[in-house]
Amino acid sequence: MEFLKEYLDYAVFGILGTMGFIALWVTFERFFYYRSVKWQTFDHSEHLNISLSRHLTTLSTIGANAPYVGLLGTVLGILITFYDIGQGQNLDTGAIMLGLALALKATAAGIAIAIPSIMFYNGLVRKTDVINAQYRALQDLQRQH
């Protein structure tokens, strides 16, 4: 239990920090890719769609799972708080509230990673849809001529 107590914050915030870094990296990589992609040069719409949607699943997965990582940290923090209270036979309400408040910071961090990740994901999916629509419109125009 002491090991968990000592390293819980480092583990949870390390995982969430890594998730946040990956989400930011994917967002910037996709943003710059969309600005530079020559979608007119693709031979088939499915090849374009595969190229455009690369890494978006990672961003969605981070957005969906970051709150759970934070929640796991909170649950383990609450477990440690109750364990310490039980070991000390001390029912100090100040210690209980402090332990619970510190445990909740993991959930807040998970939500803080999830919200922008999902927002970036939705924006990038929208950009993918726009580029795909432009490609289809260009293909239709070329077929008409």
Rank of each mutant, 00 (worst) to 15 (best):
G20Q: 01
Q89K: 00
A114H: 05
T41L: 07
M19S: 01
Y83K: 04
A95F: 13
W39P: 04
T107R: 00
V26W: 15
A106H: 01
K127H: 13
R35D: 15
R143M: 11
Q89H: 05
I113T: 06
Q40N: 07
I118W: 09
M119D: 13
L91Q: 02
S53F: 14
L71W: 05
Q142A: 04
T57G: 02
A64R: 04
V37C: 13
F31C: 04
Q89G: 07
F82I: 09
H44Y: 13
V12T: 09
V130E: 15
S51M: 14
L56K: 00
Y83T: 10
R136M: 06
A137R: 03
I15T: 09
L104R: 00
M97G: 03
D129P: 08
Q139T: 05
F32P: 12
Q89E: 11
T41Y: 08
M97D: 13
A114Q: 05
I111S: 01
I115W: 05
L52M: 06
Q134K: 03
T128V: 04
I80K: 00
T27N: 07
L104S: 10
I131Q: 08
G110V: 03
T93S: 11
F32Y: 15
Y83I: 10
Y121K: 02
M97R: 02
F13W: 10
L98G: 14
Y10H: 07
S60G: 09
I80Y: 13
T61R: 03
T107E: 13
G123N: 04
I62S: 05
V69W: 04
L91D: 09
V69E: 06
L102I: 11
T93K: 01
Q142M: 06
Y68A: 00
A101D: 14
L91P: 03
H145V: 05
Q142S: 09
F120L: 08
M19W: 09
E46K: 00
Y33W: 11
L104D: 15
Y7M: 09
G73L: 09
M19I: 07
G88I: 11
I115F: 05
H47Q: 14
M1P: 12
A137H: 09
G20M: 00
Y68E: 02
R30Q: 05
L72S: 05
G77F: 02
I118R: 00
S60V: 08
D92P: 00
G94A: 12
Q144G: 01
D84F: 01
F13I: 09
L16H: 10
T107C: 02
L141S: 05
L124I: 10
I131S: 06
L4I: 09
S45R: 00
E46S: 04
F31H: 06
K5F: 15
D84V: 01
L79I: 12
I22L: 12
T58S: 14
Y34N: 14
G17Y: 13
S51V: 15
A101C: 10
G88K: 05
I22H: 10
Q89S: 02
